[in-house]
Design a protein around this nucleic acid. Structure first.
Lengths: 342, 342
DNA sequence: CTGAAAGCGCTTACAG
DNA sequence: CTGAAAGCGCTTACAG
């Protein structure tokens, strides 16, 4: 932040007070057209770049939204952040991004950082925060909303937007059970305990409803410290239940890895095993075979969070939002009943 | 930015001046241990959150790095930004992210925004800025570095870090020519004219060196307004040269799309057509078949940019950096000479 | 239509 | 070891 031209410099050159310069530049109504024009020209000529820091300090808002995200390179969160960014751009807001792995301590620190920077609002994604942590960050009054939090919020001032994970599990189970499968596996993730549990619970409950016995459902979760896609590969390799003909994966990354893992074992998808993912990544329709998946409205998740955040910032009450997933049947799942593809 | 507790409030409660509070909180050396402790306790109890905006205004730096990126959800740029973020985190810096499609006007606007916000430095990725634009943003002295710019920079104060695209094209050509292919296609991108041209030029030049005639090299670029993966799919579908047995794609996204496109046409990769991508996305080793590709050191690209930026911020001279790509042979390419896989 | 003054919340010489 | 004062670059009542 080197010495730059300020409103004072312009004022000196123009022979007016800096007050007048400020007003001219902001398009204040009652100011003579001539001086407004002169000042604009001068500002341009002198290469004036308004200092948003000073403006923020005075105006008590920064026009920036803070977001804490688990992984910058995650394609799922990339789409969500894109949804957030779209509305930021439309509102002339900036995005202050902080990374925090799947870990409450890091997330807490990132949030505090954002609070210090006086962002107008915060969106935290994939939160692992405990009620105690939430109470702590709640002391500072900056409005915040959680997307797909791994814990229930127990907060009066904060809001959340969540995909209905349980319903997603139901969708997957219903799809597969209808196809006639009898023995199942679930490939889960230890990184997100909350949504993992909801998805697998919805899945199992629904399977049971369809008359499948619990002993016919094999469940595994991959280590928290490896990438999802690799985890999927590994879990596919490690699956030793010969009767399993259908697997539901926590997300598409795991499913894509599983596709590769099964192929490496010489197991044909979908002919020997059907696979269903979750998320509907851009990639997933181009995999081989194209992936059947439970789609999340990713951009909408981000936009909805921004919408809720905006009303929180305006000081109004809002409700939490729950978005509904939808099943997209592609070629990685097929019927065993008639030996036909779906 | 509601009314919060300030250093003044703490001072009042502690019965000292706000000067003392400031010093105590920042760990100033010459301050009695008792008052330091008392003030720390008070700050904690009162829920004091330091105002980074005020600090920035006074200290003339913001400890934030601005980055302008073409697409938040792009897996390649995600990895690069991750590299940037890693070093930001290590330096206690924040990341201010602005999106700007592949378009000079938007990028210019984003950069100006960042300058107003007084970030300590700017990294712009995939820049399309013309020399005239660069001259304009150069008036403001905030240090900036470009990663994989689409145009040569012609700037004295700004720096760039770039992958050697021409060398990447050479690598691909050499790999494929050595495998014995005689007729080629290139699937390019209109979105990045600079790197596209360099890659295809390196590719063709090297093929010629290997004795391939130019008339045996078919070149296409997909529309600028569709996603890469879809573009790859489309170009594969549209390829009507029956003799082509090897295609080099501008990037992995296009290659992955091409994989799907060829499969849809009933063309087997690699047995009928070999494919080579560029980037080495996390995905690419899990595709079917796993993708042969020219790898870019993505995190290193980001880290190097940060390193150069830091020395620019310190006011020292630095040179541009050119990073070198490397060929990763996987299963999407094979030899036609002996009918064997590579 | 314009200016002088106060103030946003800090930090940091300058004195003591 | 501590305080009074100035100042970072703006905006905005309050007067005129």
């Amino acid at each position: 932040m080197a010495r730059r031209v300020s409103i004072m410099d312009i004022a000196a050159r123009a022979g007016v007070s800096h007050t007048t310069v400020s007003r001219a530049l902001r398009g204040h109504t009652r100011i003579s057209a001539v001086v407004r024009y002169r000042i604009a020209a001068l500002a341009d000529e002198m290469g004036y770049v308004p200092n948003a820091i000073a403006q923020s300090l005075k105006q008590q808002h920064t026009s920036t939204i803070g977001v804490v995200v688990s992984d910058m390179a995650d394609p799922f969160w990339g789409e969500v952040v894109k949804g957030i960014d779209d509305v930021c751009a439309a509102n002339d807001q900036s995005l202050l991004l902080h990374t925090a792995a799947h870990d409450a301590a890091q997330q807490l620190k990132a949030i505090q950082r954002l609070q210090q920077r006086r962002v107008d609002g915060i969106i935290v994604v994939d939160s692992q925060l405990e009620p105690r942590d939430v109470r702590q960050i709640e002391q500072d009054a900056t409005p915040t909303v959680f997307i797909n939090s791994q814990r229930t919020l127990e907060s009066t001032s904060f809001r959340s937007v969540t995909i209905d994970n349980y319903a997603g599990g139901e969708l997957a189970a219903h799809h597969l059970a209808t196809l006639g499968h009898q023995t199942y596996a679930y490939f889960g993730s230890h990184k997100r305990p909350g949504s993992n549990l909801q998805r697998v619970t919805g899945f199992i409950d629904t399977l049971v409803t369809h008359g499948i016995e619990r002993s016919k459902i094999f469940r595994t979760e991959c280590d928290a410290d490896i990438a999802d896609i690799e985890g999927g590969y590994t879990m596919a390799q490690a699956l030793h239940e010969p009767d399993v003909t259908a697997v539901f994966c926590y997300n598409d990354a795991i499913a894509l890895g599983a596709l590769a893992g099964f192929r490496a074992k010489g197991i044909a998808v979908p002919h020997q095993i059907s696979i269903v993912g979750f998320d509907d990544l851009a990639m997933s329709r181009y995999s081989w075979p194209p992936l059947t998946t439970v789609a999340q409205p990713k951009a909408l998740l981000g936009q909805t969070a921004m919408h809720i955040l905006a009303t929180l910032i305006d000081g109004h009450a809002v409700l939490d939002a729950v978005l509904v997933p939808t099943l997209i049947a592609r070629d990685s799942s097929m019927s065993l009943l008639k030996g036909l593809r779906t």
